[in-house]
Amino acid sequence: MPQFDPSSFASQIFWLVVVFGALYLLMSRIALPRITEVLDLRSERIADDLDKAESLKRETEQVIAAYEGALEKARGEASAIMAKVAQNLAEQSTAREQAFNSELADRIAAAESRIARARDQAAAQVRDIAGELATEVTAKLAGAAPAEAAVEASVDRAMTGDR
């Protein structure tokens, strides 16, 4: 086998050392630091971007929280205003009702008193008319006018119902 021919050993070892040494220098001085740099830069950049995204997310959450707080406050205010308005309306309507009721009662009372007065007047007039009528009817029938006191007494008797 050519592998066991020692005549080429020196040359092979020599060139191996030269080429391997050169490659080692190229790798350790140029190639590997470059790749390390690129990989570090990339992982840094990714970490940065993640941080940025995280802070933006937190900001968004804050804004949402603030917005929701404002909305909640506005809702509270609106319901307070509505409650106040409803209360006002209820108060006004009860006040009006009360006023209306008392006026109604007043008017009813006045009307009733007028009616009572009219009835009394009418009753009095009916008595007078009945008296006059009785006197005239008696005068025509009997030819002589009855005594005024007797007429009044009989009219009163008739009007109160006991004959």
Partner: peptide, 25 residues
């Protein structure tokens, strides 16, 4: 008196190192 000839073996070593270098750099 030491035979340090540049052989086909050396040539392929150089080629391998060159390919590695181009690949990585």
């Amino acid at each position: 008196g030491l035979d340090l000839s540049f052989t086909n073996s050396s040539a392929w070593m150089v080629l391998a190192a060159t390919v590695v270098t181009f690949f990585l750099i």
